[in-house]
C-alpha cells in the first residue's frame, strides 16, 4: 500500500474504509469507529479487570489502573483546585480516550482516530461547550467580564474585547489542531521512512545495507512517537483542566 509505482504515498493511511462488511457499509461504520470502540472496551477492561482484585498490595493491572487514576486526579485537583473533583470523571474519560487512541494507532495495521481533525475538534468542542456552560452557570452575566481585564482604560474596550473574544474562541481550535497535527506528522514520518526502507532495499547488492539507515531512523521514531502519544494526551488533559480553572475562578 505504501509503495505504488515507486512513489511515496504517506497519506492513504488516513483514509476511512468501512468495516464489518455490508452492515458497516450501509451505516458508514469505518475502521476509525471500530478503533474507538476497541479503545473504549480496553479502557473499561483495564479499570474493571484491574480493580477486581482490590488487593492491598496491587498486582500489575491494578497498579497501572491506580497509577493512571491518581495521575489524572492529581492533575485535575492541582490545576482546578478542590472544586475540580467534580470534573475529574470528564477529564479522566478524555485523557484515556485520547491516550488509547494515540497508543493503539502505533500498533501495526491499526488506525489512529486522533489523526482526524473531525475527531479532535469534536472532543475540543465538547470541552469548549463545557467550560462556557460552567462559567456561565457559576458566574452568570459576570462571566462576560472575562473579556475585559480590570484596570484597563475604557477607551481600549473596542480593541481589547474583540481580541479577547477571538482568543477565547481560538481555544478549541488550537486544542484540536495541536493533537491532530502531532499525530498526522508522526505517522507521515513513519510511513515516509518505512517507504525509504522498501525503496532502498531494492537497490541490488548494497540495498540491504543502505536500507538499514532509514530502518534505524524508524526504530528511533517509534520510540519518539510513544512519547508524543502520551505527551499529547497529557497536554490535552492539562489544557482542559486549565480552561476549567479559568471557568471556575475567572482569571
Amino acid at each position: 500500500m505504501a509503495v505504488e509505482g515507486k512513489t511515496i504515498d504517506a497519506l492513504s493511511q488516513f483514509e476511512l474504509t468501512p468495516v464489518l462488511g455490508a452492515v458497516g457499509r450501509s451505516i458508514g461504520f469505518s475502521q476509525s469507529n471500530m478503533h474507538m470502540l476497541v479503545a473504549g472496551l480496553l479502557i473499561v477492561a483495564l479499570l474493571m479487570v484491574g480493580m477486581r482484585a482490590r488487593a492491598v498490595v496491587p498486582g500489575r493491572l491494578q497498579a497501572s489502573a491506580e497509577t493512571i487514576y491518581e495521575f489524572v486526579q492529581n492533575l485535575v485537583v492541582g490545576q482546578v483546585g478542590e472544586e475540580g473533583k467534580r470534573f475529574f470523571p470528564f477529564v479522566f474519560t478524555l485523557f484515556m480516550f485520547v491516550l488509547f487512541g494515540n497508543m493503539l494507532g502505533l500498533l501495526p495495521y491499526a488506525f489512529t482516530y486522533t489523526s482526524h481533525i473531525a475527531v479532535t475538534f469534536g472532543l475540543a468542542f465538547i470541552v469548549f461547550v463545557l467550560i462556557t456552560v460552567v462559567a456561565l452557570a457559576r458566574h452568570g452575566m459576570h462571566f462576560f467580564s472575562y473579556f475585559f481585564p480590570q484596570g484597563a482604560p475604557l477607551w481600549l474596550a473596542p480593541i481589547i474585547i474583540p481580541v479577547e473574544v477571538v482568543s477565547y474562541l481560538s481555544r478549541p481550535v488550537s486544542l484540536s489542531i495541536r493533537l491532530f497535527a502531532n499525530m498526522v506528522a508522526g505517522h507521515v514520518m513513519l510511513k515516509v521512512f518505512a517507504t525509504f526502507v522498501v525503496l532502498l532495499g531494492g537497490l541490488g547488492v548494497i540495498g540491504p545495507f543502505v536500507a538499514a539507515l532509514p530502518l534505524a531512523v524508524n526504530i528511533a521514531l517509534v520510540g519518539f512517537e510513544v512519547l508524543v502519544a502520551f505527551l499529547q494526551a497529557y497536554v490535552f488533559a492539562i489544557l482542559t483542566s486549565i480552561y476549567l480553572h479559568d471557568a471556575v475562578h475567572l482569571h
Binding site: 490545576q79 477571538v166 481550535v173 505527551l231
Partner: peptide, 30 residues
C-alpha cells in the same frame, strides 16, 4: 508544577505556531 511540560525548543515553537494559526483561523472565519 502544574504548568505545561516544557519540552524541546521544537515543541515550544510548534505550540506557539499552533496558537497563532488557530487565532488567525478564528479571526478570519469570524
Amino acid at each position: 508544577r502544574g504548568g505545561l511540560p516544557s519540552g524541546s525548543t521544537w515543541g515550544v515553537g510548534f505550540r506557539a505556531g499552533v496558537e497563532v494559526v488557530s487565532a488567525l483561523i478564528v479571526g478570519v472565519a469570524l
